[in-house]
C-alpha cells in the first residue's frame, strides 16, 4: 500500500478505536442509569433509592394478583427468583399484564417496602408462537388441535 494511504488507514483506525473506547467507558460509567429498572433483589437489598421514583422490573408471581372490589387498585408481587417486592397500582393495566409475565412498574417505595406505582408496563419476551402451539406446549392440547410440525 502507498505510504500516504497507509497513514490515512492508521488515522481511520484510530478514529474508530478511540471513539469506541470513549463511548464504551462512558456507557460503563453510566451503566446504572442505562438500566431501565432495578431487579427486585436490588430493591430488597436496599440498593434502590427510596426518596425518588424508581422502576422495578421482574416477573409477576403466580397467584399474587389481588384486585380491589371497589376501585381500580391492584396489588401484586414482582420477583426475579432472588427477591420479591410488592407493588400497588391504581389504574388500567396493559393488555399483556398477567401472572407469570414480565412487568416494569414505576413509582416510589413506601415505608413498608411496597412500591406505589404510577405506571405499569408489560414486558413481553422474545417468544412468538401461534395460540395452538402455545396450548400444545402447556400440555392442554386436545384432539381438536392439529399436531404442529417442528
Amino acid at each position: 500500500m502507498h505510504p500516504r494511504r497507509k497513514q490515512r488507514l492508521v488515522w481511520v483506525s484510530l478514529i474508530v478505536v478511540l471513539s469506541s473506547a470513549a463511548i464504551g467507558l462512558t456507557a460503563f460509567a453510566l451503566r446504572d442509569n442505562i438500566n431501565l429498572f432495578y431487579p427486585p433483589a436490588d430493591v430488597v437489598a436496599g440498593k434502590a433509592p427510596s426518596d425518588r421514583n424508581i422502576r422495578l422490573g421482574g416477573m409477576v408471581v403466580e397467584g399474587s394478583i389481588e384486585r380491589s372490589d371497589t376501585n381500580l387498585t391492584t396489588q401484586f408481587v414482582v420477583t426475579d427468583y432472588e427477591g420479591s417486592v410488592a407493588v400497588r397500582y391504581t389504574g388500567i393495566l396493559p393488555d399483556l399484564f398477567a401472572e407469570g409475565q414480565g412487568v416494569v412498574a414505576e413509582g416510589r417505595l413506601d415505608g413498608e417496602g411496597v412500591l406505589v406505582a404510577t405506571q405499569v408496563l408489560a414486558k413481553h419476551d422474545e417468544n412468538y408462537m401461534p395460540p395452538e402451539v402455545a396450548a400444545a406446549l402447556e400440555g392442554k392440547s386436545k384432539a381438536s388441535v392439529a399436531p404442529v410440525s417442528p
Partner: peptide, 23 residues
C-alpha cells in the same frame, strides 16, 4: 447488557429461534 423494556432478539443465528416457523 442492560435491563431494558425491549425484549431480546427472537431470530438466533446459532441455535433454535424463539419464533415459530410459521411466523
Amino acid at each position: 447488557w442492560w435491563y431494558s423494556l425491549h425484549q431480546p432478539a427472537s431470530i438466533k443465528f446459532t441455535g433454535e429461534s424463539a419464533i415459530d416457523a410459521s411466523m
